[in-house]
Simulated scan of single mutants.
Amino acid sequence: AVDRPYTKDGSREADFIPCVTWGKTSETIGNYVHKGQRLLVEGRLQIRRYDAKDGSKRWVTEVIVNHAEFIERKEQTSQQPAPQSMESFGQQVPFDEEIPF
């Protein structure tokens, strides 16, 4: 789930994006991640079409995960509220205006 950066009518909204993993990545996530724990995922967006049982055409958009990274420990999930912005993920690095090329 990804929280939207705005509220509509005073309520929070989120988008639930299906993520597909294979191999060791899916095994690790299945063994060590629980509902509500945040992950950082990298991958490609895949849009595919299929025919439903009723004959209608359906579209699915999903992320095919190439890399997943734990960004919090299990203990943090139950003790701290979820951050509302990216600033909470680490330290800000100063911008160097000199370009090396």
Rank of each mutant, 00 (worst) to 15 (best):
58 R>V: 11
25 T>N: 12
79 Q>Y: 03
9 D>F: 14
35 K>L: 08
35 K>F: 05
4 R>Q: 11
99 I>Q: 12
88 S>R: 12
10 G>V: 02
19 C>T: 04
67 H>K: 14
69 E>C: 03
43 G>D: 00
79 Q>V: 04
55 G>I: 14
1 A>G: 14
4 R>W: 08
17 I>E: 13
89 F>R: 01
46 Q>Y: 11
84 Q>R: 07
50 Y>E: 09
4 R>K: 12
27 E>P: 00
6 Y>V: 03
77 T>R: 08
88 S>W: 07
24 K>Y: 05
75 E>P: 00
5 P>I: 05
76 Q>D: 09
73 R>G: 06
84 Q>K: 07
40 L>F: 10
88 S>F: 08
67 H>R: 14
90 G>Y: 04
10 G>E: 02
3 D>Y: 09
86 M>S: 09
22 W>A: 09
60 V>D: 14
68 A>R: 09
92 Q>K: 08
34 H>A: 05
18 P>V: 07
74 K>Y: 01
37 Q>P: 10
63 V>S: 12
27 E>K: 06
23 G>I: 01
86 M>Q: 08
66 N>Y: 07
59 W>L: 11
71 I>P: 00
38 R>G: 01
63 V>Q: 13
36 G>K: 03
81 P>D: 04
82 A>P: 02
48 R>C: 15
43 G>V: 01
34 H>D: 10
53 K>N: 15
22 W>I: 06
94 P>V: 10
13 E>H: 13
31 N>P: 05
23 G>A: 00
2 V>T: 08
50 Y>Q: 06
9 D>G: 14
73 R>N: 06
9 D>V: 15
30 G>E: 07
10 G>L: 00
88 S>Y: 09
84 Q>G: 06
54 D>M: 13
99 I>H: 11
78 S>G: 01
45 L>G: 10
66 N>L: 03
76 Q>I: 01
34 H>Y: 09
99 I>F: 11
56 S>H: 12
79 Q>R: 10
42 E>G: 06
8 K>T: 04
81 P>S: 04
15 D>L: 07
71 I>H: 01
29 I>H: 08
48 R>I: 13
34 H>C: 07
4 R>S: 05
32 Y>G: 04
55 G>D: 15
27 E>D: 09
53 K>C: 15
89 F>G: 00
98 E>W: 05
55 G>P: 14
58 R>M: 12
43 G>A: 04
20 V>Y: 13
41 V>A: 07
5 P>D: 05
65 V>M: 07
81 P>R: 07
77 T>W: 03
59 W>K: 10
74 K>A: 02
8 K>D: 13
66 N>S: 11
74 K>E: 00
28 T>L: 12
7 T>M: 08
75 E>T: 02
36 G>P: 01
51 D>T: 04
34 H>E: 10
100 P>F: 13
71 I>E: 00
57 K>F: 14
12 R>C: 05
70 F>H: 09
60 V>N: 14
93 V>W: 15
45 L>M: 15
24 K>T: 04
98 E>T: 10
71 I>M: 01
11 S>Y: 00
8 K>P: 02
91 Q>G: 06
100 P>E: 13
70 F>K: 04
28 T>R: 09
